[in-house]
Amino acid sequence: MKLSFKKRSSSEPVKYITLGKDGKKYEFIYSPTDGLRVNSKKQDIEIIDDADGFTYIKFKNKKFPVEVIEQNQNKFVILINGVSYNYTVETPLSYQRKQIIEKTMKKSKTGFVSAPMPGKIIEVFAEENAIINEGDVLLILEAMKMQNEILSTISGVVKKINIKQGDNVNKDDILLEIRQ
């Protein structure tokens, strides 16, 4: 009793929907017979690896140096011409799923403030249970001999402070939890 489900075959086109951080959306369809289509327009893109270890994209007779600087599952950070872009690559199914989840999911009530770079905590302004507004200075992080103000990205109540003055923190360490 085989699945009476639509069979996949290799000549079938592959389709991906790639989403940028700022709502940019690209649809890539590739099939061995038709080639590549970007947003339904036919495009010719070539990828070249040179002997020095750089990778380029050749497009319209222009060379763009490119590299993947971060990847986590389907989330990519691509560096092209020295500028980075964040993309999530979705299949038609996962794209549909994403839209549904965004619509139905309750937004998490807890926001996390994480360290943007490794450094040392110089001063903590935030106090537990204090009410803070978006843009308030929470603490000062010293890195590369510069003191950086870490601002709150959301308004709410400080639920938990994970660090104290003088602590050394790594990149992406969670410094504070804020409850909306």
Binding site: M1, K2, L3, F5, K7, R8, L93, Q96, R97, K98, Q99, I100, I101, T104
Partner: peptide
């Protein structure tokens, strides 16, 4: 299932197994 952003049980199986190798029992 798609309305909830999920796949049906059979679609999941289809993705998991090598093409055309799945045999169901007690359907």
């Amino acid at each position: 299932q798609h309305a909830k952003g999920k796949l049906s049980a059979r679609e999941r199986i289809e993705l998991l197994f090598d093409r055309n190798t799945f045999e169901e029992i007690d359907e």
